[in-house]
Design a protein around this nucleic acid. Sequence first.
DNA 1: CCATTTTCTTAACCTCGGTAAAGGGTCGTG
DNA 2: CACGACCCTTTACCGAGGTTAAGAAAATGG
Lengths: 210, 210
Amino acid sequence: MRSLQFPPYRMNIREEDINPKFVQLFKSIFGFDQIEFDCFLSSFRVRHFKRKEFFLRAGDICLAKAYVNHGCTRNFVIDERGHEKVMCFAMEDWWLGDFESYYSGRPGTTFIQMMEDTEVFEISKEDFLKREQEIPKLKQWYSYKMMRSAIAAKSRLTELETLTAEERYLLLMERQPEIFQRVPLKYIASYLNIEAPSLSRLRSRLLKKK
Amino acid sequence: MRSLQFPPYRMNIREEDINPKFVQLFKSIFGFDQIEFDCFLSSFRVRHFKRKEFFLRAGDICLAKAYVNHGCTRNFVIDERGHEKVMCFAMEDWWLGDFESYYSGRPGTTFIQMMEDTEVFEISKEDFLKREQEIPKLKQWYSYKMMRSAIAAKSRLTELETLTAEERYLLLMERQPEIFQRVPLKYIASYLNIEAPSLSRLRSRLLKKK
DNA sequence: CCATTTTCTTAACCTCGGTAAAGGGTCGTG
DNA sequence: CACGACCCTTTACCGAGGTTAAGAAAATGG
């Protein structure tokens, strides 16, 4: 890729303001040097969202993915009864997008809403495909992420089928304790697939046990 | 791949006994000619299982995948309370295996048990990797299947979170009606994530409605 | 710093589905 | 044919969690 022509920089951001994990991925794991990294960065644009703003809504066609530099989002769907169901929370070092819509090119079903003021680096589907063709490792990396995502979805499915609400709560406490500092409990309840009053009951039950 | 040396045939089966979808995939979609197809087939071996036999058990390391030529299996896990939870049924034209164990090389959590006498074509991880290196399209196809599988797992997750047991039952009736002819209801109940008596109640409720 | 919105908890009530056990039906094999 | 194995349904009981509403606490924005 050393000889490639990249478009002029669009991304105007100091490197010390970029999540170290992002830099590390491309410099250490992909072995980009400074020039290559800067070139790669130029495919992205920085976007800022206020709390409550949406990155994506059901019905939108997802034409880009975005890296969360800082901030926090909730991804949810709305079922036939009009209830919101939180599928996951994305925070620093996660990628945003509606997988299915991105690949099918059809309108998606996912809402992605900011839970905090959030900064993301966005890259269009088109640009990502170009970079993928130039950088074989990028394709490998993405295919690996896809596999991880398939495994993660299956294991979350298993958890939902085999664990009680209380067990899912304790698991979340263990895995992503920071969520409880950053996200209202009602959304956590939704993620656990229970209603807010049930989560309250569950929590007070656990408090009494101790 | 025309000039490749393949190992001598191991698979002794008449082509008319092979599911047409299997032949079509490799001949039409991959564009294999007869010799190439026969060579590719030679990486597989035919295995026969009796009803109730296992292809895989929790704790096993999954070192192969297998194409279901005819027959039917249930894939399930066992939770902490010792309950079996059916994750899916695999029948003609499905592939068997424990995804996660296959990739991680660690012991898996999945049981795959025959619901009928079943014939599969098995290919080892090792041989599949070799074929993938010789046949780029195979890798593409597999990467595509991975993506589909990730999307399917996510959509099944959404269904489990947003639909009632009755809705999931009707959906299954619509999508895979043949399952009701081939699989005992208690396993279908487990797949729907309810107990057998609940499925009975649900069914008699639906009968009365009509 | 106040007004408004949002969030969390609690209560009362009710439904759905889990559990266990029993009975009847069906299938296959000796 | 007869036996056992397996399967399906039904019953009765119980508990977890949904629903709705209300009030207190906290956070947000001007």
